[in-house]
């Protein structure tokens, strides 16, 4: 099952990239060394961690109310 999925993903990415070679459009995310992708990744990671902190905060608030 996993092997099939991996094959499918490889096939799909290959398929997409095969068509993406010549024509370039709206390419901010792919331009000049693709640094924007890294920026996006780090931003996602940090926002994810921040949301996680918020959920901890909320759980703690519930616990505090329960305790009083």
């Amino acid at each position: 099952m996993i092997k099939k999925l991996v094959c499918l993903v490889i096939f799909l990415t290959g398929y997409v990239s095969a068509f993406a070679q010549d024509v370039e459009m709206a390419d901010t995310m792919r331009s000049s060394g693709k640094i924007y992708v890294v920026v996006g990744t780090i931003a996602i990671v940090f926002i994810g961690l921040a949301i996680y902190l918020f959920t901890i905060d909320r759980r703690l608030t519930k616990l505090e109310k329960h305790n009083d």
Binding site: V38, V39, A43, F46, I47, F54, D57
Partner: peptide, 20 residues
């Protein structure tokens, strides 16, 4: 929560501006 949101927004800004 307001100051926590402020902190998160500031760091997100610096992550984006820091690279660009």
């Amino acid at each position: 929560a307001w100051w926590k949101i402020l902190g998160v927004l500031l760091v997100v800004y610096t992550i984006i501006a820091g690279f660009l």
